[in-house]
Computed example of a mutant assay.
Amino acid sequence: MINGAHIIIYSQDAEADRAFFRDVLEYPHVDAGDGWLIFRLPPAEVAVHPSDAPSHELYLMCDDVNATVDQLSAKGVTCAPVTNAGWGLKTGIRLPGGGELGLYQPRHETALNL
């Protein structure tokens, strides 16, 4: 049976993004060989949304988006303005490799504690 998920982030600067996950987010990791870091993520959930143009996004979740933005900003991370999406407060985190991760504080029940 399926026992996990492996998420891939494509980057124009993979080394910088790996350093971001290691040094800024401080995610535990293993070295799969030659400095190829694989990170343990916090507990996760998946949602399926309707769309005419299928795509995928990665959002990190937090309990207090404003406090998290303050912590990230203190580490030199650029975050988009926090906005109210109704279902939660959200922002974006700019990765060194040019990509962006979503970050949000949900206002809805989550599946994390099932």
Rank of each mutant, 00 (worst) to 15 (best):
G35Y: 13
D52Q: 10
S51F: 07
P54Y: 11
F21A: 02
R107D: 07
D64A: 11
V24E: 09
G97E: 05
H6K: 08
I93W: 00
Y59Q: 01
L58K: 01
N84Q: 09
I7L: 05
A111K: 13
V30N: 08
L101F: 08
P54W: 13
V46H: 07
D13S: 01
Q71A: 15
P54L: 14
D63S: 08
D31C: 04
P96K: 01
G102Q: 04
D34M: 13
R18F: 05
G33P: 04
M61F: 08
W36R: 08
G97A: 07
M61P: 00
R40L: 08
T83P: 00
G86P: 06
V77D: 00
T110I: 13
P28K: 09
L37N: 02
P43E: 13
L95K: 01
V46Y: 03
L101V: 05
P42W: 03
D17W: 06
D31N: 11
M61C: 12
Q71W: 13
V24F: 01
R94F: 06
L58P: 05
Y10D: 14
L112Q: 13
Y10H: 11
G86N: 08
Q105M: 14
T91H: 00
Q12H: 12
A44M: 13
W87A: 02
G99I: 04
F21V: 04
M61H: 00
L89N: 00
A5S: 01
R22V: 02
I38T: 11
W87C: 00
V82L: 03
L103P: 05
T91E: 00
A19C: 01
D13I: 03
K90C: 05
P81W: 06
W36M: 09
E100A: 07
D17S: 10
A5T: 11
S55T: 15
Y59G: 02
T91F: 03
P43V: 15
A16H: 01
A47S: 03
V69P: 00
H56Q: 09
E26T: 08
Q71C: 14
L37F: 14
A47P: 00
H56P: 00
V65L: 09
T68V: 13
G98D: 10
A32G: 07
D64R: 07
R22F: 10
S51E: 12
I9M: 09
D52W: 15
S55R: 04
D63A: 12
E26I: 04
E57M: 03
L60M: 09
A53T: 15
A5L: 14
E100F: 07
A53C: 01
V65F: 03
T110P: 06
P106Y: 09
E109P: 02
A32L: 10
E26N: 13
S11C: 01
T83W: 09
G86V: 07
P54A: 11
A85W: 14
D70L: 14
P42Y: 03
R94M: 10
R18M: 10
D17N: 15
A85N: 13
S11E: 02
I8E: 03
A32M: 07
K90M: 14
G35S: 08
L37D: 04
V46D: 03
S55A: 10
N66C: 12
L89A: 06
L101A: 11
V77S: 01
E100K: 10
D52T: 15
D34W: 11
L95I: 10
A67L: 15
M1Y: 01
G97H: 03
L112G: 05
R22N: 08
L25S: 14
